[in-house]
Lab assay of single mutants.
Amino acid sequence: SKDAAQYVYDEAQKGVTQVTVNGVTFKFDNWQKLLKYAQKLLN
């Protein structure tokens, strides 16, 4: 959902490398990768 994507995006902006959405945890090597993933979700 857009809300989940926005949440992931906001978390990535904080510099975190993992985020949990609806009980599913996504882990990334660095926050830039998390940010890229979030941007994909938002598009």
Rank of each mutant, 00 (worst) to 15 (best):
A5D: 10
K27A: 15
Y7P: 15
K14D: 13
G15T: 14
V24A: 04
T17K: 02
Q13M: 09
N43A: 06
V8C: 15
L35Q: 01
K2F: 09
Q32G: 06
V19N: 01
S1M: 13
A5T: 03
W31S: 00
W31T: 00
K36P: 01
Y7E: 14
G15C: 15
A4P: 13
K40D: 03
Q18H: 10
T20F: 06
V21T: 12
V21P: 14
F28Q: 01
V21L: 02
T25G: 07
D10L: 11
A4W: 09
K33Y: 06
V19F: 04
Q13T: 09
T20E: 09
V21G: 02
Q13V: 11
K33D: 08
K14V: 11
V21I: 12
A38L: 12
N22M: 15
Y9W: 15
T20C: 02
Q6S: 04
T25P: 09
K2H: 08
Y37F: 10
Q18N: 07
K33F: 06
V24H: 03
E11F: 13
L35V: 02
L42Q: 01
T20V: 13
A5S: 06
L41H: 01
Q13P: 06
Q18M: 07
V21D: 13
Q32N: 06
A38N: 00
Q6Y: 04
E11P: 08
Q13C: 13
V16C: 15
Y9A: 12
V8E: 14
V8N: 11
Q6L: 09
V24E: 02
A38R: 00
L41A: 01
Y9R: 03
S1E: 12
Q6E: 13
D3N: 13
A38C: 10
D10N: 09
T20R: 13
Q6D: 15
Y7F: 11
A5G: 06
Y37Q: 07
K36Q: 08
D10A: 06
L42R: 01
K40Y: 04
Q13H: 03
N30R: 05
K36C: 07
T17V: 10
G23W: 13
Y7V: 15
N43W: 06
A12P: 08
D29Y: 12
D29E: 10
D29N: 12
W31H: 01
E11C: 15
S1A: 11
V24S: 04
N22I: 15
T25I: 12
T20K: 02
N30T: 14
Q13I: 12
S1H: 12
V8R: 02
V8I: 13
A12H: 09
D10I: 15
S1L: 12
